[in-house]
Computed example of a mutant assay.
Amino acid sequence: MGNADLRQLAVIEETPFADLEGSVVAVDAHNWLYKYLTTTVQWTSEDVYTTSDGTEVANLVGVVQGLPKFFEHDLTPVFVWDGGVTELKDEEIAERREQRESYEEQLEEAREAGDAIEAARLEARTQRLTDTIHETTRELFDLLDVPQVEAPAEGEAQAAHMARVDDAVDYAGSDDYDCLLLGAPVTLRQLTSSGHPEVMDFDATLDEHDLTWEQLVDVGILCGTDFNPGIDGFGPKTALKAVHEHGDLWGVLEAEGEHVEYGDRIRELFLNPDVTDDYTVDTDVSPDVDAARAYVTDEWSVDADEVARGFERIEDAVAQTGLDQWT
């Protein structure tokens, strides 16, 4: 998820949707879907999205509630899925697993105590993107003709790359601050919130702090990333000052007598990530809303009332913008 402390350095401005109309956004699918999944679980009765055999597909509710925001504002989302997990991320994944197991134990205690509010909060925190969630989300996107791209590794890295080199893609879309370190020229944040999105500007951030891309990554490594825990005592401002004083990560580490394991590899993961140009994005979309509705409510037994408004919004947006304008 990146280090949220980087917000202290990032140049970010709230932007009206009107200024984004007609844009194509490469969306970090995992990041976007997880936000809607956890929100749905926290605020919706599980009866709404649980099949007769006990399979939970809260993701389908989240997708139907989340997609209209793009269509209503004439934005074309291209959802980018994670591929293989980077080896150096194993420790972070293990830590997340341990944290989730701890939440699961607390959840059971809350249920036994009859604390419904605490149970709902913990249910949201214990969510994971299961194979069923991945498969059903992809199928629903296909029925709605939403473009999808499979990344070879990290989805946010592929999204950042697409925004950087593909003239057809205007923004990366993610709340992950790693998009800044990955060089996404402009990243749309808060796409799952109720207000206007934020635009995080890469070049403006470099200019604001008189940094090169490499130095920005060095600041991130000193603070801590998904691939390393960072150096004790180094927040964004301390790291920025140190990089200015000593030139780069290696100069800072030498001056401080510190060491970052695999520091050179971590640097390369941001500057030269595993991405691909072998993809196609067809923005001439033709969503089959009736088929999508049947898939969600009939095949997966999601309460029709829970998704009715979402599908209505999609239909209204298609009628108002016209499919030929979803480009």
Rank of each mutant, 00 (worst) to 15 (best):
E72A: 02
N31E: 09
R313Q: 14
E312S: 05
D274Y: 07
V285Q: 04
L269K: 12
K35I: 09
A204C: 10
F234M: 15
T132E: 11
R293G: 05
Q99I: 00
I231H: 12
L88Q: 11
E154Y: 02
D278M: 06
E261G: 12
T126S: 11
H246V: 02
E95S: 05
E123Y: 01
T137F: 11
N228C: 09
D166H: 10
D298A: 12
V275I: 13
S301V: 03
L269I: 13
V186R: 15
D226K: 07
Q8G: 03
Y36F: 15
R265N: 11
T225N: 07
R138C: 11
V219L: 10
L122K: 13
L249C: 06
L33Y: 09
A58T: 05
P236E: 02
E315K: 08
E72Q: 10
T136A: 03
A294R: 15
G22K: 07
D324A: 07
V243D: 13
K35T: 12
D316K: 13
F202A: 02
T15L: 07
P287C: 12
S174N: 06
A124T: 08
L323C: 07
R7H: 04
V61P: 00
L88V: 07
A292S: 13
L37D: 01
D175I: 01
P197G: 04
A291T: 08
R128Y: 04
E72K: 06
Q8W: 01
H244E: 13
E92L: 01
V41T: 09
L182M: 15
M162F: 13
V186C: 10
G233V: 09
L140R: 00
P229A: 02
E254C: 06
K89T: 05
A159Y: 10
P152L: 03
E315P: 01
M200L: 13
D201E: 13
L143K: 11
D115R: 11
E254P: 04
D82E: 12
D290A: 14
V289Y: 00
T51E: 13
T51C: 09
T44G: 04
M162A: 12
A319W: 00
L20Y: 08
K89V: 04
E21P: 03
L191M: 13
T76W: 00
L206N: 11
Q158K: 09
D170F: 04
D324H: 08
G247I: 06
T38N: 08
E258W: 08
L191S: 11
Q106T: 03
Y36P: 01
R111F: 01
W32Y: 15
A151V: 01
D175E: 10
D288A: 08
E312P: 00
D142N: 13
Y262Q: 15
Q42D: 02
E135N: 15
A113T: 10
T136L: 05
E214V: 03
V146I: 14
E46T: 14
T40Q: 04
D142M: 02
L249V: 06
F79R: 01
V318C: 11
A124Q: 08
L129H: 03
D203G: 07
R313L: 08
Q158L: 03
E123P: 00
A168E: 15
E72M: 01
V281K: 04
E306I: 07
D5R: 14
N3Q: 02
D53M: 04
E72V: 01
V85E: 09
D167V: 04
A157N: 08
P152Y: 05
